[in-house]
């Protein structure tokens, strides 16, 4: 009787450990999915930054002349 009780408690321990482990694994899976969802946002930001840089490279001096003109006109007024 005592041996049966001992075996039952051991089995219960094993089952709870397995259940807890399964719970842990579930949490791990969720944390692995998150970066995949965020990635496209990073790519979009990256493209915008690159495009902004390319536009500044081309239009930079033209824009400077434009804003310089504005500053000059404002000073005259």
């Amino acid at each position: 009787m005592k041996a049966t009780f001992h075996t039952a408690s051991l089995l219960l321990c094993a089952v709870s450990t397995a259940a807890l482990s399964a719970g842990c694994f579930q949490v791990k899976t969720e944390s692995e999915i998150k970066p995949i969802e965020v990635k496209p946002i990073h790519i979009t930001v990256d493209i915008n930054v690159k495009v902004d840089k390319a536009l500044e490279d081309f239009f930079g001096d033209l824009d400077d002349a434009e804003t310089g003109k504005t500053a000059g006109e404002n000073a005259a007024q």
């Binding site: 493209i47 915008n48 690159k50 495009v51 902004d52 390319a54 536009l55 500044e56 239009f59 824009d63």
Partner: peptide, 17 residues
């Protein structure tokens, strides 16, 4: 073409500038 995106995106970014 250089950045591998669309003319529309480049235009809208330029509009902001």
């Amino acid at each position: 073409k250089k950045e591998g995106t669309t003319v529309e995106l480049v235009g809208s970014r330029r509009a902001l500038q």
